[in-house]
């Protein structure tokens, strides 16, 4: 399932990354500590976090995740949004807490298989 399909099915909004590639999502990873994400997140996963800043963008790009999902409806600031557009990184926003967000994605990807 691709990021846009996932966003639609799970009811998440696309916050940034209009020009980014609509990549296939192959799993879920949740963590807020950046170097934990660097070390443990697999490529092509949806990365769920509540921290949204420009440093998360670098991590998402270098760890090669499919998209960032900001949980708990935490707002994405203008600078992060602008940089995400520029670096072509997809950011989704979920109103749900981290666990429920992960569960929703897991169910969507599972159902699509």
């Amino acid at each position: 399932m691709t990021v846009y399909t996932l966003a639609r099915e799970a009811g998440f909004t696309v916050e940034a990354g209009a020009d980014a590639e609509d990549r296939e999502v192959k799993g879920v990873y949740c963590c807020d500590l950046l170097s934990m994400v660097m070390g443990r997140a697999k490529a092509d996963t949806a990365w769920i976090t509540v921290i949204s800043n420009v440093n998360s963008l670098a991590v998402a790009s270098l760890a090669d995740v499919a998209c960032i999902v900001i949980a708990e409806g935490v707002p994405v600031d203008a600078e992060t949004r602008a940089k995400a557009e520029q670096q072509e990184i997809l950011i989704l926003s979920s109103p749900l807490p981290v666990f429920e967000t992960g569960l929703a994605i897991h169910r969507c990807i599972g159902a699509a298989e």
């Binding site: 500590l33 950046l34 934990m36 800043n53």
Partner: peptide, 16 residues
């Protein structure tokens, strides 16, 4: 508060 400080940077460098 920006998400750094897990103490995983150097171990990641070694691992990768």
């Amino acid at each position: 508060s920006l998400g750094f400080g897990a103490g995983m940077g150097l171990p990641n460098m070694k691992k990768y």
